[in-house]
Amino acid sequence: MPVIELKNISRSYRNGQVFINALENINLSINEGDFISIMGPSGSGKSTMLNILGCLDRPTSGTYEIAGRRVEKMGDSELADIRNQLLGFVFQSFHLLPDLNALENVELPLIYRGLSGSERYKRSVKALKSVGLEQRIHHRPSQLSGGEQQRVAIARAIVGDPKVLLADEPTGALDSKTSESIMEIFQELNNQRGITIVQVTHEKSVAEYGHTIFHLRDGKIEHVENVIKQK
Rank of each mutant, 00 (worst) to 15 (best):
H138P: 00
L87D: 12
Q143T: 01
N226A: 12
R83T: 14
L86R: 05
H95A: 14
L97S: 05
E134I: 08
K231F: 06
Q143C: 05
K204R: 15
E208V: 01
Q143M: 14
K46E: 09
G160P: 04
F89G: 10
R217E: 15
A173K: 10
F186C: 07
R217Q: 14
G43R: 01
S37Q: 03
R217I: 08
Q17R: 13
V90M: 08
N190P: 07
T63F: 01
G210M: 08
L216Y: 10
E184L: 13
V18H: 11
A80G: 06
Y112C: 07
R120G: 00
I182Q: 02
F19R: 13
D57T: 10
G16D: 10
V206W: 06
T171P: 06
L96I: 12
R217G: 00
S205Y: 09
A80N: 09
A173H: 07
G114H: 02
G210T: 04
I82A: 09
I137P: 00
V164H: 00
A153G: 11
I158H: 10
V106E: 08
S10N: 00
V198Q: 06
G146M: 09
Y112S: 13
L110Q: 07
S44K: 04
R151L: 12
D175W: 07
D168L: 08
Q199R: 02
D218H: 12
F35I: 07
F19A: 14
N25Y: 05
E188T: 14
N191K: 15
R11F: 03
T196Q: 05
I20A: 06
G160W: 00
Q143S: 12
S176E: 14
I195K: 10
T201N: 05
K163E: 15
G210E: 08
I82G: 07
E184V: 09
P170S: 11
L87H: 01
H202D: 07
I52T: 01
E5C: 08
G147F: 01
E24C: 03
K204T: 14
I195Q: 12
I38R: 05
E5P: 03
G68H: 02
E24I: 09
E225Q: 15
K7R: 15
F214K: 01
L128H: 04
L166K: 11
G45Q: 05
A207H: 03
Y209V: 12
G114C: 10
I197F: 03
G132A: 11
N191P: 00
D57L: 07
V227Y: 08
N190E: 08
K73L: 08
Q17T: 13
F91Y: 14
R14Y: 12
P59A: 09
P109F: 08
L115K: 13
L100Q: 00
D57H: 10
S77F: 03
Y112E: 08
E24H: 04
G147R: 09
A67I: 11
S37V: 12
G45S: 09
E208A: 05
I228P: 03
M49A: 07
D99K: 13
G210Y: 02
I221R: 03
N101V: 13
L53S: 10
G43L: 01
L216G: 03
A22Q: 05
G68V: 10
K229T: 11
G43S: 09
I36A: 02
R58W: 00
E188S: 15
I195R: 11
D161E: 15
